[in-house]
Nucleic acid binder design. Structure first.
Lengths: 231, 231
DNA sequence: CGTGATATTGAGAAGGCTCAACAAAGGTGG
DNA sequence: CCACCTTTGTTGAGCCTTCTCAATATCACG
């Protein structure tokens, strides 16, 4: 049995949303796992066992296409919930995969207990519902972008939302370490194309890089790339 | 004041999900509207007033890009909720537009009252949350398709999901009348491209048409187009 | 019978993908 | 510390899908 690392109630989606009386029950029912960089937490088609929360580290949630293509749907960082799509009515298998981007700690809640939590705690259900509404809005925004926005704009959008989600480290770089391949999968384009686009952005001095680290220099112009010309 | 057409409690998402005691309150607070074909119910950027349900007819929920492009996110038919993305935390304006595809009747619930409903009726909140989880799963599925699936597959997918949502009329056609333009916007491609793809599908005898009406002849082969080769 | 909307088809351009080659970097075992 | 090997980065060329634009045809309807 691993050391039971306690969740930080101020950041974890689950604990933050729960009523006080229920917190001991959560503490008793959750299981914390350490994950290694690149470790697959669950994979598309796996039978559903429960819901996950990130305590430390970053997780990518992705969906495969063919043998060697994928789209990264979103990233889950500290405090975030993932695996929650399975709450839907007919969901018996995970529709997506989750992989650790770096070493971290995740917290697992058995599905039955999680559903009990929802029943006991309507306020939490409400919070979850709001969260879903936001996610849905974002997903639909991305759908439109994938359909109509050129790759350059999608990369710009990807960088901006990475910055929003992960923030900056002291030297001004976006505080996450992504492979170019992951950036490409997040933007919904190929490795090579993203590579070229990133070069353009460097040339145009909208961003700068230091190894894998990227920082945004001209946020305004970058943002312009994500807009349609004539609204 | 328009005639107050009562919702059918067995089909409307709202009434079906609500506790009995609350139904009179809903009846007192909802407003039913008749909508004409092509009528815009709300538009991207409009300030949020409330939530809508479809009593009769079909609504398209869409998101613009530039002056003359859009992506149809989903269709709402009898009983369905729409405008619900605005439940998210920072949502003060509709992120999408809703337009009637045909004459129909919609039911409007003021935002404040709807939120009161959620508070009074945790079971409904729970149902809504499940619904969102399903929507989210579907949205993310579509995201991947837009990113990686060729147009032909997307059109096939569009036809299949139209069939699932609207069913067939007595002569076997998908029971909804869509313009080609709308089909194109739903599949995330241009009018001309969709036109050509539809021709291919006719040639291959996977579908047949009668004016705007489309019917699926070979569901299995059509479905194959929506799959990736090597899983 | 005209007029505007929708359908149909073609040619061409462009954006993005594939493939392939090579360079650089980063480990690993000797 | 070096040789080796694997992974990741970098670049070019060509192709293919899809979009764009434009021309004509057909339809709906007053």
């Amino acid at each position: 049995m691993k050391k039971n690392i306690q969740c930080d109630n101020n950041t974890c989606f689950l604990c933050k949303g729960c009523i006080k009386e229920w917190l001991p029950a959560i503490a008793a029912n959750k299981k914390n796992f350490a994950v290694k960089k690149g470790q697959v937490i669950f994979s598309e088609g796996d039978p559903v066992k429960g819901i996950y929360f990130v305590y430390e580290g970053n997780i990518k949630v992705h969906k495969k296409w063919g043998a060697d293509k994928e789209l990264i749907i979103r990233f889950a960082n500290k405090g975030a919930i993932f695996g929650h799509r399975v709450l839907g009515k007919h969901a018996t298998h995970y529709p997506i995969s989750a992989t650790a981007l770096e070493a971290g700690i995740i917290c697992f809640i058995d599905m039955d207990f999680f559903e009990a939590t929802l029943k006991v705690n309507p306020q939490f259900t409400y919070q979850l519902m709001l969260f879903f509404a936001d996610e849905l809005q974002e997903a639909e925004h991305k759908m439109r972008n994938l359909a109509h926005m050129p790759v350059k704009g999608r990369v710009a959008q990807a960088l901006i939302s990475l910055k929003e989600q992960f923030g900056l480290n002291p030297d001004g770089h976006i505080d996450v370490e992504l492979t170019r391949q992951d950036l490409a999968s997040y933007a919904g384009a190929t490795y090579e194309t993203v590579f070229r686009v990133v070069n353009e952005l460097l040339q145009e001095k909208l961003i700068s890089t230091n190894g894998k680290k990227i920082s945004i220099i001209n946020h305004d112009k970058l943002f312009l790339l994500t807009q349609d010309d004539e609204a």
